[in-house]
């Protein structure tokens, strides 16, 4: 069966499970684009889609939109609730508004872009891939990051990158306080140009400069001589 070019689903009045089944079926059949009307900040919209498809959310979404997905691309024309693109394996999710707590938690690949502000714990346990925040990032963003890249164009609240293992954070604005075990390093050649080009692509205004932050690795191994440092952790 030849795939049609796009599918439009009006979410109003329909069970979330039926909507998600329809998106997955469309992805299986190779439909390139699905457009969701009236998402009405409903939770769990477009979760667990494991084949490539482009999902357009026309409105605000609730928690875990585009969660547990692999290889999808999505644009959310509104604000996103908690845990947008949770555990994304690969693909690209763009939020045009703000995102609530835990944007892109524990993603394993792909890219999540929040053009507005992101709430607390955004990018926590990031494992690979990247999170770009056009505005400010909330408390404890990048907490326990294990790898990957986080770009925050605005300011960050307290505990930025607290206890992160690996990966990097580029911070354009000020941090109210850096998290434990974080230090500033020099950016490598071309790294900032790459970030700048990405911001251009998503039409996000780049800050004047970026600080590159990463783990100082002091919390990797317990050392009783560093007990003072450990007392501040958690």
């Amino acid at each position: 069966m030849a795939a049609s070019n796009s599918l439009t689903i009006d979410c109003a009045g329909r069970p979330t499970r039926a909507i998600n089944d329809e998106i997955r079926r469309a992805a299986d059949e190779g439909v390139p684009v699905v457009e969701l009307l009236n998402p009405q900040a409903r939770h769990n919209l477009g979760v667990s889609v494991l084949k490539p498809i482009h999902v357009v959310y026309r409105g605000h979404v609730g928690s875990y939109a585009a969660g547990l997905c692999d290889g999808i691309t999505a644009e959310i024309h509104g604000t996103a609730g908690w845990g947008v693109a949770d555990n994304l394996m690969n693909g690209e999710v763009v939020v045009y508004g703000n995102a609530a707590t835990s944007a892109a938690p524990s993603i394993r690949g792909g890219r999540v872009v929040v053009r507005g502000d992101a709430g607390p714990r955004s990018g926590m346990i990031l494992k690979k891939g990247e999170l770009i925040v056009g505005g400010n990032a909330g408390y404890m963003s990048g907490f326990m990051m294990q790898n990957g890249r986080m770009v925050v164009c605005g300011d960050a609240d307290t505990g930025l990158g607290d206890s992160m293992y690996q990966g990097v954070i580029f911070l354009g604005g000020k941090a109210r306080e850096l998290g434990s075990g974080l230090h500033e390093v020099d950016a490598e050649n071309g790294e900032l140009d790459e970030v700048g080009a990405l911001l251009d692509r998503f039409e996000i205004k780049a800050p004047k400069s970026f600080r590159k932050l990463r783990s100082d690795q002091k919390l990797w191994h317990f050392n009783k001589h560093d007990f003072a440092a450990w007392k501040d952790v958690l």
Binding site: G59, N98, G119, G138, M140, T158
Partner: peptide, 9 residues
């Protein structure tokens, strides 16, 4: 459809 924001920690 008003704009919303979330207070921080």
């Amino acid at each position: 459809d008003i704009e919303v924001w979330e207070p921080g920690a």
